[in-house]
Structures are given as C-alpha cells and as structure tokens.
Amino acid sequence: MATTSALPSINPIYRRHLVLQITGYGRSTFYRKIAQGLFTHPVNLGNDKSGNACQVGWPANEVEAINNARIAGKSDDEIKKLVIALESARQLAAQKLDELIANQTQKLGILNESIISTAAIRHSFGQEILTNLEKSTSPDQTQANVSGGEQ
C-alpha cells in the first residue's frame, strides 16, 4: 500500500564538484556537454557584487534523469530532447510560481486595504466617541462630579 506524505518532495541542488563525480565527466567535458545541449544549464545560487553568477548548481532530478538516459543508452539527439524538456519544465515551474506569488500578493493587497479601512473606521469611531465625551463632560459637570464624589 502506497503512502502519501504531507511534506513536499525535496529536490536538492548539486554543486559542480558533485555533478562531476556523479556523471564521471571532467570539467571541460562537462561544460562542452552543456554547450552542446547534452546537459542542462546551471541554476544560479548567488551573485557577486557585479551581479554575475558566482555560485551555481544543478537540480538533482535533472542530473539523475540525464544520467539514467546515458545508462539506458539513449542517443545524443534523445538526450538533447530530454534536456530541452527538463529546462522547459523549469520555466513552467517558474511561471507557476510567479502566478502564485502574484495571486498571494493580490490577496495580501486586498487584506491590507481591508486592514487600513478597518483602522480608519476605528480611528474615526474613536474620535467620535472622544468628541461626544468632551461634549457631555463640560468643566462644570466635571467639577460637580469631583465635588459629588467627595461627599
């Protein structure tokens, strides 16, 4: 019986040294494979002060998929198609994430407007109460209340 987990699946990002160990490629060969479309482009993990990518990695599922294709004896053309599909899936996931963020931001904007309106109403209502209290307690009444309280 299969069980489902409430936890999201974790897809680690491998740094280059680990990808080289997993694939068995040397550095030059690895970057040549990327240039030839036989391996996915890296994911940017951080930028230097100039804005250039200085830390990169590859999603584990992509490394595994390409390795499995190689092990299965897939041709370079088939692997190129796989790489295109993997990178397209990344773009689709990014678009869905952007849509989710936009949706949540819109919800937060509506909530924020509601909170601001509620605060304005409370402020206005509070001012009205203070004004009414000031009108109902004139200095004469205040003095009478103080005097009356002492008796």
Rank of each mutant, 00 (worst) to 15 (best):
T3D: 10
A6P: 01
A6Y: 12
S9P: 14
P12G: 06
H17V: 05
L20G: 03
T23W: 01
Y25I: 00
G26D: 04
T29S: 15
I34E: 08
F39T: 05
T40H: 07
H41C: 08
N44Q: 08
D48F: 07
S50F: 12
G51V: 08
A53Y: 12
A53N: 11
C54H: 13
G57V: 02
A60S: 10
N61P: 12
N68A: 11
I71H: 12
I79A: 00
I79K: 07
K80R: 11
L82G: 10
V83R: 06
S88G: 02
S88M: 13
A89Y: 12
A93F: 11
K96F: 14
A102V: 06
N103S: 03
N103Q: 07
N103M: 07
L108W: 08
I110K: 11
L111V: 03
E113M: 05
I115Y: 03
T118Y: 02
A120S: 15
R122T: 06
H123C: 08
S124Y: 07
F125A: 15
F125S: 14
I129H: 01
I129L: 05
T131G: 14
E134P: 01
S136W: 05
S138A: 10
P139L: 00
Q143N: 07
V146I: 07
S147H: 12
Q151M: 12
Q151T: 13
